[in-house]
Design a protein around this nucleic acid. Structure first.
Lengths: 366, 366
DNA sequence: TATGATTGTGGGAGCGCTCTCACAAATTAT
DNA sequence: ATAATTTGTGAGAGCGCTCCCACAATCATA
């Protein structure tokens, strides 16, 4: 019997190569060493009141010496809080994850999570099979306190419904296409695109084209709507031949521009910077100078926009703030439950660089 | 008493708006409904043997109907396995996370995790305060089964030591600078850079410069070493004035190239594609044509390299495979314990495009 | 037919926490 | 002084699983 206990103890506190104790120390072990009860140690660890100063100090000392860390799984099981948030990027954005937008967003989200001591679980859906596995993993209790879901093509928005059914707190990144009874954060794509188009009109362009995002995505639709509205508000004729659907990739922008060039537009509103970079490439290959022969304006303000040749005039999104805001909303949802869904729309900003020809125009008019 | 039980039941199985049952169903609930014991349900859920076919079917039916999911925390606590891996990106790479390399790597890792039913926890260290919080969160028991650590500047490699002390399975991404008793995956940076330099020499260039990575990083050092060795092996003089240290950013490449141009190099080996893109920009601004006036070769083969103007000759890294291999090694470590640390070095591949002038040379010699 | 091995099932003891409650001790109010 | 409150502490009952062991029922073997 004695032997058995001894064995257990040895097993509990093994020593590693560097001589530092590694251990599956428990509250009870700390309690014993500090001469108090498990409950008291728990209070100290969680910084709860009703512990006398000297006891708190004594327990803290033992914790320091032993390098005790509370077990996350046990804590989660007992408190029903995992302090982990999920970030789900659906299949339709998987290929775009290398584009600067998503890494940037992820940075914002990760930063916000760190700040509030949440762990961030990343779910990148790369295939239909992934999706199934991820569905069950995300809705499983005891792992996530809440989920951020990137909105995407309408084909992969089932996850939002699943989470609603499972009653799991969620915040959607970007306006979801088929749900309005869910909290989401979005950037004002309509007004951003509107401002971009107005900027081109103000610069005197009248034959204005657009390379849109996928018509299956809310982002693509919204930016297209803003563009259209600006033209109609300002009495500029919208030629359907000047509207080409792109896919948010560099190559997509390149091919769209190639199709657009025969129509001889004076200016193009491209629904993303990456596509704009491709569009510039196509224009240049066709012997055209940007902005002298054709003006361009992008959307996003990715880091590359500024260093592109020519630097891109674009609509800046507050990407990092966007991520932070989403996390804050989610935490609020987790803490205070489901009040009526909230919709946060963030503003964009027109960044004037060279590709729109504003600088050239200035020189002419000045 | 009866009332109380009734109340508990009601509480357990609330109905949501869509009428679908949401519940904190437990094994016991399923057991009761299927008329078997908790143990049997557990066997069914975990697909263990020793369950008769009809019982298995009956239990499966109940699970299907109720939408039961096992609780992750409880499972983790009881089995001491969380099925979660951590990916730690130290502070020195935080700013690079938007570069295509890390998102690409993350994709590979995420894919591998999905495939093996692991959840991926992402830790992006954005500051010194983050680092502290993340240290404790990563070493905490009951959350992670193992950790992938990106190697970075020698200043932020403490985490590797911490994990070793805590006896947590880890695989380092990239050769760590100060540990060799740890399992890591790396790309053969030395031979990659060597091949790049040899390629330039073969094309007839003799005045060959390099824009290196940070001398604080193993990657920067290794690529520089490979470059140097190639020149010395081939009897090409290495002029120290032709070596400029960069920082892996586009802007860094731009400025490095500006400093390099007065020395009139014929060709430049740039230690990353992003820096190469910046270098092209600087060369062009100085009125030089790439590759006619100056040849360039990059490293990484990010997607942009192919669409750059001119398309970049570069050294391709098997980024996705790299991530997958790292996950596999980590899973092996988790399952089979710490055998002597393994070092996996993956091969690179020379991708010839336009920026090195190979095509021009072909025309001349052909 | 008796014996042993195999298969199927249930009970129980944890895993390491949180959290409510009981209760003693110290404080304040009456 | 006593009663009422506040503060500090510990015991105990879970949280929802896994996993070992006991045991009955079935099968193969002697």
């Amino acid at each position: 019997m004695d032997f058995c206990e001894e064995f257990v103890k040895t097993n509990e506190s093994a020593t590693n190569l560097t001589g530092v104790m590694v251990s599956n120390l428990t509250l009870e072990d700390i309690a014993e060493q500090a001469g108090v009860s498990r409950s008291t140690v728990s209070r100290v660890v969680n910084d709860l009141p009703n512990v006398s100063e000297d006891v708190r100090r004594r327990v803290l000392d033992v914790i320091q010496q032993t390098g005790y860390h509370p077990n996350a799984a046990a804590r989660t099981l007992a408190s029903q809080r995992s302090w982990t948030l999920g970030l789900v990027l659906p299949q339709s954005v998987f290929q775009f994850f290398t584009d600067p937008y998503f890494p940037h967003l992820t940075k914002g989200i990760a930063q916000a999570c760190n700040e509030h001591n949440y762990t961030l679980a990343l779910y990148l859906v790369s295939s239909k099979e992934d999706e199934k596995k991820i569905f069950t993993r995300v809705t499983r209790k005891g792992l996530l306190d809440g989920v951020l879901v990137q909105s995407g093509h309408h084909g992969d928005q089932q996850i939002i419904g699943h989470l609603m059914d499972a009653n799991i707190p969620q915040v959607v990144l970007g306006r979801p296409q088929h749900f309005d009874n869910v909290t989401f954060v979005d950037v004002d794509n309509v007004s951003g695109a509107y401002n971009a188009a107005v900027h081109l009109i103000r610069l005197g362009y009248r034959r204005i084209a657009t390379i849109t995002g996928p018509s299956l995505s809310a982002v693509g639709l919204d930016r297209h709507a803003g563009f259209t509205k600006a033209l109609s508000d300002r009495g500029v004729k919208l030629d359907e031949a000047l509207v080409i659907e792109g896919d948010f990739t560099e190559a997509g922008g390149y091919y769209a521009m190639q199709r657009l060039l025969p129509t001889r537009p004076e200016a193009v509103f491209v629904a993303s910077d990456l596509m704009a970079i491709g569009a510039v490439r196509a224009a240049r290959e066709a012997g055209l100078s940007v902005p002298n022969d054709i003006a361009l304006i992008g959307f996003d303000d990715v880091p590359l926009a500024a260093t592109n040749d020519p630097p891109l005039t674009t609509i800046r999104q507050p990407v990092v703030q966007f991520g932070i805001r989403a996390v804050e909303l989610l935490m609020d949802l987790i803490e205070n439950g489901i009040h009526p869904p909230r919709h946060v729309i963030m503003d964009t900003q027109l960044i004037i660089r060279d590709s729109c020809g504003a600088i050239r125009k200035d020189l002419i008019s000045g």
